[in-house]
Nucleic acid binder design. Structure first.
Lengths: 218, 218
DNA sequence: TAGATTGTTAATCGATTAACAATC
DNA sequence: TAGATTGTTAATCGATTAACAATC
């Protein structure tokens, strides 16, 4: 079989796909059946050409004059992201952040469903969060293999992150969504996506500091 | 007074500053007193020139051969971000995510301290989270003015976000850290920084989907 | 047909990286 | 002095935007 060799999609494009997907699903609920790039671009404040390229990169195609068939496009994007059959994931870290992630129902529609909770802190093990028992890290490898789980969410404090990350990689998890403020280096076989709220807060802080402060006047 | 006109710092640079800051604080705790760009670059997997430019953009300067004085550099970055005297912030949304944000102590060191909690849902008002009473949105404007609060954290469900955002802007909040999956358009006087976990998850999902799946073999 | 929209190629823009002179 | 490091200018790279032909 000759596989068509497309460019790999860029990270910025990839990050925009969920925005399109969310709009498409909202519009579908309203009964709309066709969309054009201009509709999407206007709603998101993007350039229409950019939208067209993003959709093309995800494998979607439309028809000149008509646009894209909404349902087909939605399915194409969801399929491209692997979000149509949510993967099972393990949560490591049962603190407040872990609990919040567990409580958020939206992830099921985003390709991820948390099926078990672990914590390296013996003080947390044995308790339960969101109706799920908190298991010791020692059980991670065994369960990951038995359940064929590939995805892990890491939400432990910074000082426990490196070791927990290593344990997750050794357990065979291939993707780690890392909420700890620590860079994980787990080799090329493990994909790590880092979420760092401080980075986002820095943008806000600096912009706010630049804004004229009304209270400056006495 | 003639103000030197520097380029505005780029968003990518801005987002890297917290990473430097975190390292600097860790190294300072270890007693180190000098750092070079190469140290920082190596620890983060960045290009040394990029680090040098980032630091320069934040107003830091070092000495050839010696490097940067650690404490001075840390103070410079923290000052540039306005993180040395944390601003007081209101949290709008007392659900699981709001509670997790409230419980996270790290924000105080990142320029933000949550001082009151609001919720548009009457069912939540009157309760308390993290030891703080949940107040009705109607009290937002009055309190913001009295306490001179400029910053808000929006963590309500999607369908309540637009209205809550509007209320926050009307109350005079100038910066909104938006965790709702909704684009807020509140005019040029309000800085909105959007955090969308689905965007991050998309990157992970797609990379994971591209990885060879060991379970493919039967 | 005429007009709107896609798909694609070219131009622009901005961020990253490389090269190198200045400095302690 | 020699060597390491900063600061800055130039080159590269990649993403965004513009232009336009192809299409229904």
């Amino acid at each position: 079989m000759i596989a068509a060799m497309h460019h790999p999609i860029s990270v910025p494009s990839l990050r925009r796909l969920p925005l399109y997907l969310r709009l498409l699903e909202a519009w579908r609920a309203e009964g709309r059946e066709q969309v054009s790039c201009t509709h999407l671009a206007d709603a998101l404040g993007f350039d229409p050409t950019q939208v067209r390229k993003d959709l093309a990169a995800a494998g979607a195609s439309g028809r000149p004059k008509v646009g894209y068939e909404l349902k087909t496009l939605r399915d194409c994007l969801a399929g491209f992201l692997g979000w149509d059959n949510p993967g099972e994931a393990f949560l490591v870290g049962a603190g407040p952040l872990g609990q919040a992630l567990l409580a958020y129902e939206g992830f099921a529609a985003r390709g991820m469903s948390i099926v078990a909770v672990f914590d390296p802190d013996p003080g947390r093990v044995g308790g339960s969060v969101g109706g799920k028992p908190v298991l010791p890290l020692a059980k991670l490898a065994n369960l990951a293999a038995r359940m064929h789980v590939r995805l892990g969410v890491l939400a432990v404090p910074a000082d426990a992150a490196a070791e927990a990350g290593r344990a997750m990689a050794e357990a065979g998890l291939q993707g780690i969504w890392n909420f700890a403020p620590v860079r994980l280096d787990l080799g090329p076989l493990v994909v790590v996506e880092h979420v760092d709220l401080a980075q986002s807060l820095a943008v806000l802080s600096h912009r706010l500091a630049e804004l004229p402060q009304p209270s400056e006047i006495t």
